[in-house]
Simulated assay, not measured.
Amino acid sequence: MKRKVVSVMCAVVMVASLIVGCGSSGGKEETKESGDGAKAEVSLEGDIYKIIPEGDLVVGFSTGSSGTSWRDQMIDDFTIVAEEYKEAGRIKDYKIVNNTTNGDATEQANIIRDFTSDPEVNVIIVDANDSTALNEAIADAQKAGKLVVIADTGCDAPGALNVVLDHTAWMTKNVEFVTEALGGKGDLIYINGLDGNPADNARQEGVDAVLKENPDMKILQKTSGGWDQTKAKEACAQILSTTQDVDGVLTQDGMAYGCLQAFQDAGMLPKVMIGDPGLSFFTEWKKLMDEGADFQACAQPNPPGVAATALRLAVNMAEGKELDESKLDGNTYSYIVGSFYTEENFDEAWEILQKESGDYQLDEWLTEEEALELFK
Rank of each mutant, 00 (worst) to 15 (best):
W70A: 08
S24T: 12
E29S: 13
K95Y: 02
N129D: 01
A105P: 07
S24D: 15
G37C: 02
V42A: 14
N102F: 02
N122A: 07
G89H: 01
I75E: 08
A109G: 11
V58D: 03
G67C: 01
W70V: 03
I51G: 06
W70E: 04
S66A: 15
G26R: 11
G55C: 08
I48A: 09
D77Y: 09
E30M: 15
M74R: 04
S62T: 01
R71Y: 04
S43E: 14
G55Y: 07
T116A: 07
D76L: 14
T79R: 04
D36E: 09
D47M: 03
V59G: 00
V42K: 12
T31Y: 10
E84H: 10
K95M: 04
P53A: 08
V121Y: 04
S65P: 11
G46V: 02
D47I: 00
I96A: 08
A40P: 05
I75S: 05
R90Q: 06
S65C: 10
I52L: 11
E87C: 03
I125Q: 03
E87I: 05
N129W: 03
A88P: 03
T116E: 14
S65I: 04
I96E: 02
G23S: 07
G35M: 00
F115C: 08
V123Q: 00
E30C: 14
K95D: 07
Q108V: 04
R90I: 00
N99T: 11
N122Y: 08
D114K: 11
Y85R: 05
G64T: 07
D56A: 06
V59C: 00
V97S: 02
K39F: 08
M74A: 10
I124C: 04
S43L: 13
D127M: 10
G35P: 07
A38Q: 15
E107P: 09
G21H: 11
T68Y: 00
A82H: 00
C22Q: 14
L44Y: 12
P119V: 01
N110I: 13
A82L: 01
S25G: 14
E107F: 11
E41Q: 15
N98F: 01
K50D: 14
N98G: 09
D76A: 12
N98E: 14
E87R: 03
T63L: 09
